[in-house]
Design a protein around this nucleic acid. Structure first.
Lengths: 387, 387
DNA sequence: TCGCCTCTCTTGAACGGTCAAGTTGAGGCT
DNA sequence: AGCCTCAACTTGACCGTTCAAGAGAGGCGA
């Protein structure tokens, strides 16, 4: 038994309580001959009691098989959870396969670890949409969201009509939105998508390109893909895609290229294979005089699909066609993949910024992180007319 | 106001309570003129009250700005949290950059979504080791673990002397260990690492190889790397690495190759670049007659590093040297990377299995998932002696 | 020697839900 | 009519902590 030099605590733990029924703080107190508060302090505030008594309490707790203070009871009393929630637009499982999402997660995780907060991935069911209306849809919410014991929520890249936001607002949780949607009065972290898109389009225009294809991320969460007409692009609910599109088009228009003549190919998933399949027909167009000489892809993965499609069509990059991406999630691998011209954006930085923002307790306001145009080998001068 | 056909609930919510102090269930009850239980039922058990009354209660709740039932209070009463915890060996942030870990996470996330459970990533501080001793190290635990409001914990790939396990055991949480360490009485999900390693080594032996290098994942969490001597390999605390090593060596010994002559190069991180740097000196060895003809890498990433090192040394693959990996996390990318001979293991399947296991509430027992030897272009016949 | 302060520990009351066990009134069955 | 059942709601206790306030002992300066 531990040597106890403090006041004589007569009853030492061996009074066998049934180990089956989970011991509580009060059981430990009883067995150790102290008050329940003292036991609580032994765990949470060591400076509030003498070292020998603390040792005695801890030993008693161990002997009783006490599992430690219950997180639920603690949270109930203190109002804090020591965790923050994360909601993804996509199926949570899919997010783990997207490098932009995992890099973002990495940043979030770093910042969380620094402040010793846990990270609750909220398992949203897919296919929930706004406008289901009933009272319960917002106050009841999805069970995953309603049960989430968190001090705040980060929302990553949601469609502007997503049903996820209302329940969060209803629960009055501090909220930070990353990437999209931008909402008045809601803290935001993201980049200048339109500006970055404009810059990369201007890069291509500066190289002499005049015939483009835009390879777009999904514009709405409805799963449609393929050529997007004007109505569809105008009704986009994914603001990031809409902003990049606007950026591309703005640059083109300013250079005298009519955006209406530039096809927009929408990919429902940020996926190389699918991008290749959807783009292939456009590149396979026979005559070099009508074929696009540059592909504006909204992500590096889509860009790699474009590269693949171009090669399959026998086109040289950047000789026949230039391809630019977005994100700079280059596989730093064996270095064999074609280095992409792209927009570098701070994925992990967004994660860190989002966590900081949540801690700062400032409501509203946007934090716009810097991006950088990175020119590599996948873009080059437009082929000369005669070629 | 809502039309209420039920009993006459006189007081309708407009009696303005201060919106500042968060409304509770009882405030809503008072305002709606019903009992607190009825309000509770309105949220959690709609079948327990009439539809019109429920609508009235919900409307009142909304008017008061009630944030919905508190997760903490609910958990305290019910004893359930609707979430399960995940603990990683590495820094949590690092895990998101490792494809095996993200695929595993993907499986976990899928299974969680199916059972509407949230996923709590527990932010362990790095560098905690067993043997710090004090009572508090296990019962107090890291704050992240102590505060984790979860119904069970999945532990991914921990060193056998990791300090993470004791606090979990102390909290009496249901526990499933994935990959390592195997502990008596603790549920386990993993693969037959030794058998799979033996199989892939036998594949190379069957191709005539006799001179090998082993490119090992870290053997201990102490960050040491480079050539591992017998003492170090014998004292490995990462059981997976130890098992694969045993598998390789077993196959070699059985084929008459003395394992003691086979160098083991340990990489502290599962990282291509580092692997290349560490392996380069061994492959740069001048004479073809002493140079290894095959590299046994414990992961695909290490294997890619080996490929890179070999190419840098001017060696053809598999002409001069064969390289095999482990994991089969092939970049399904543009398809330009060299296709690796490897062991396919079900990363996502491990995640799903772990979640199932946690739900099954069976204590102990190992679930060993199948692996498959996948022969691709990175391995071939050993160069003939004269070459 | 007294008063006051500090250190250490105790007491009792929340925190905000859920659950088990009533209570009531309406309706069905004999 | 009388009895039983059932739906619809209420009552009171309880989950296991933390916190504010207080009490007793010992030390120290005045």
């Amino acid at each position: 038994m531990d040597e106890v030099t403090g006041p004589a605590h007569g009853a030492t733990a061996t009074a066998a309580l049934p180990v089956s029924a989970r011991a509580t703080l009060r059981d430990v107190a009883r067995a150790a001959g102290v008050s329940h508060t003292t036991v609580s302090n032994a765990f949470a505030r060591p400076d509030q009691l003498s070292a020998p008594l603390r040792a005695h309490v801890l030993a008693t707790a161990r002997a009783l098989g006490y599992a430690g203070p219950s997180p639920a009871a603690r949270s109930l009393r203190t109002g804090r959870h020591g965790a923050l929630g994360l909601v993804f637009s996509e199926d949570l499982p899919y997010a783990f396969s997207d490098p932009t999402a995992t890099q973002f997660l990495q940043g979030v995780a770093e910042a969380c670890r620094e402040r010793a907060a846990n990270l609750l991935l909220i398992a949203t069911r897919t296919g929930e949409r706004a406008g289901d209306g009933g009272d319960d849809s917002t106050l009841g919410g999805s069970p995953a969201l309603r049960d989430a014991a968190v001090d705040g929520v980060i929302v990553y890249s949601l469609a502007s009509d997503s049903a996820m936001l209302d329940p969060i607002a209803a629960r009055r949780l501090p909220l930070v939105v990353v990437d999209q949607p931008r909402l008045p009065g809601v803290a935001f972290v993201g980049i200048d998508d339109e500006g970055a898109a404009r810059a990369i389009a201007e890069h291509l225009l500066g190289l002499g390109h005049r015939r483009f294809v835009i390879l777009s991320l999904k514009l709405c969460p409805d799963g449609r893909e393929g050529i997007a007409d004007a109505r569809r692009t105008a009704g986009a609910t994914y603001e990031v895609a809409a902003a990049r599109l606007a950026g591309y088009r703005g640059a083109l228009a300013a250079a005298g290229v009519d955006p209406a003549t530039v096809p927009v190919v929408e990919c429902a998933r940020n996926d190389e294979r699918r991008a290749r399949e959807l783009l292939a027909p456009l590149l396979a167009t026979a005559r070099p005089t009508t074929r696009p000489t540059a592909v504006l892809a909204m992500s590096d993965r889509l860009a790699l699909g474009a590269v693949s499609a171009a090669r399959a069509a026998g086109l040289a990059i950047p000789g026949d066609v230039s391809v630019v991406g977005f994100d700079d999630v280059a596989v730093d691998g064996a270095g064999e993949a074609l280095p992409l011209t792209t927009v570098r954006q701070p994925h992990a930085g967004k994660g860190r910024a989002a966590v900081e923002r949540l801690g700062a307790a400032t409501t509203g306001g946007a934090r716009v992180l810097a991006t950088e145009l990175v020119v590599r080998a996948s873009s080059g001068p437009a082929p000369t007319a005669g070629r």
